[in-house]
C-alpha cells in the first residue's frame, strides 16, 4: 500500500479517487486521512473486521455498506429460520442491522463480529416474535425423554427443503427449535428469553422435533435411496 501511495503521489490524489465524501472532506495534511484513503482502496473482501468496525465507528457509510455486504447473506439465512415469510425475515434483518450500527461502539471485540451480529439478529427475531405471536396456550404435555437415536444422511436434504420445514412450524415451536437445536441455548435460558417456563420450552421442543422428524420421514419415503434409520 505504501508503494501504491507513492505511485499516486499526494494524499490529495488518493482522495480524489474516493467515493466516500467523509474522507474527501478531511484535511490534506492529516496522516490519518491518507491511511484512510489507502484503506478505502482495499477490496472490501480483504478488509479486516477491525478495519470495518473502525470505519463504521468513524461514520463512513461505505464501511457500513461493506460490513452489511459481508454479513447480510448469513444473517438473512438466520432470520429466515426464525421467520415465517421472506418479508418477515427482511424486517428482522433490517431491525437487526440498525441495532448493529447503533451499538457497534459497545462491541468489545472479545468474540468474532459474526457471533455478536448473530446474537443481535436472534434478539431482533425474539422481539418480532413477541410482537407478532398470538398468545396461544400450548399445553405442557408429555414429551419423549429419548429424543436421539435416529440417523439421517446429511447429503439427502437440501437447505431449501429443511428451511421450509422449519418455517412451516408454529411460531413458538419454530423459536424454541431454533434456539435449542441450532443456537445451542438451554431450555432454562429459552424460557427466560421467551417468557415461558422451562417445562413449556421442553414440551414445545419435543413437539417441534416430532413434527420435523415426521416430515423428514415423509420426504425420505419418496426417495429410492432413503437412509433414515430408527
Amino acid at each position: 500500500m505504501g508503494a501504491l501511495s507513492a505511485a499516486l503521489g499526494t494524499a490529495n490524489g488518493l482522495r480524489s479517487l474516493l467515493p466516500d465524501g467523509l474522507s474527501a472532506s478531511r484535511p490534506a495534511s492529516s496522516p490519518s486521512s491518507s491511511s484512510a484513503a489507502v484503506r478505502h482502496l482495499t477490496p472490501p473482501s480483504q478488509l479486516s473486521e477491525a478495519e470495518l468496525i473502525d470505519g463504521c465507528l468513524a461514520g463512513s457509510r461505505l464501511m457500513q455498506k461493506h460490513l452489511y455486504d459481508r454479513f447480510s447473506g448469513k444473517m438473512m439465512a438466520v432470520c429466515l429460520r426464525y421467520a415465517q415469510t421472506t418479508f418477515e425475515a427482511e424486517d428482522v434483518l433490517q431491525e437487526g442491522f440498525i441495532t448493529v450500527f447503533n451499538n457497534l461502539r459497545g462491541f468489545r471485540r472479545e468474540c468474532p463480529l459474526e457471533f455478536w451480529i448473530r446474537r443481535i439478529m436472534v434478539n431482533a427475531a425474539l422481539r418480532q416474535h413477541r410482537r407478532n405471536a398470538p398468545l396461544v396456550a400450548v399445553s405442557e404435555g408429555e414429551y419423549p425423554q429419548d429424543l436421539a437415536g435416529e440417523e439421517f444422511t446429511l447429503s439427502n436434504y437440501a437447505f431449501e427443503e429443511m428451511l421450509a420445514m422449519v418455517q412451516e412450524l408454529a411460531p413458538r415451536y419454530r423459536m424454541v427449535f431454533n434456539l435449542f437445536a441450532i443456537e445451542g441455548y438451554g431450555h432454562k435460558e429459552i424460557g427466560e428469553m421467551m417468557g415461558i417456563s422451562e417445562g413449556t420450552s421442553k414440551s414445545q421442543y419435543s413437539r417441534a422435533r416430532a413434527i420435523l422428524k415426521s416430515k423428514l420421514e415423509r420426504l425420505d419415503a419418496h426417495r429410492p435411496n432413503a437412509t433414515f434409520r430408527n
Binding site: S72, G73, K74, M76, A77, V78, L80, R81, E90, L93, Q94, L147, A148, G149, E150, E151, F152, T153, L154, S155, N156, Y157, F159, M162, L163, V166, A181, I182, R209, L212, K213, L216, T227
Partner: peptide, 25 residues
C-alpha cells in the same frame, strides 16, 4: 456418506447457509 441425528442434520445445513437479501434492503 456422513449421517447424524436430527439436530446435527439441521445444524450442519444451517451453519454456513447464505441467502442474499433483496438488493434494495
Amino acid at each position: 456418506p456422513p449421517t447424524g441425528d436430527l439436530e446435527h442434520l439441521f445444524r450442519q445445513k444451517f451453519a454456513e447457509a447464505e441467502v442474499p437479501p433483496r438488493a434494495s434492503l
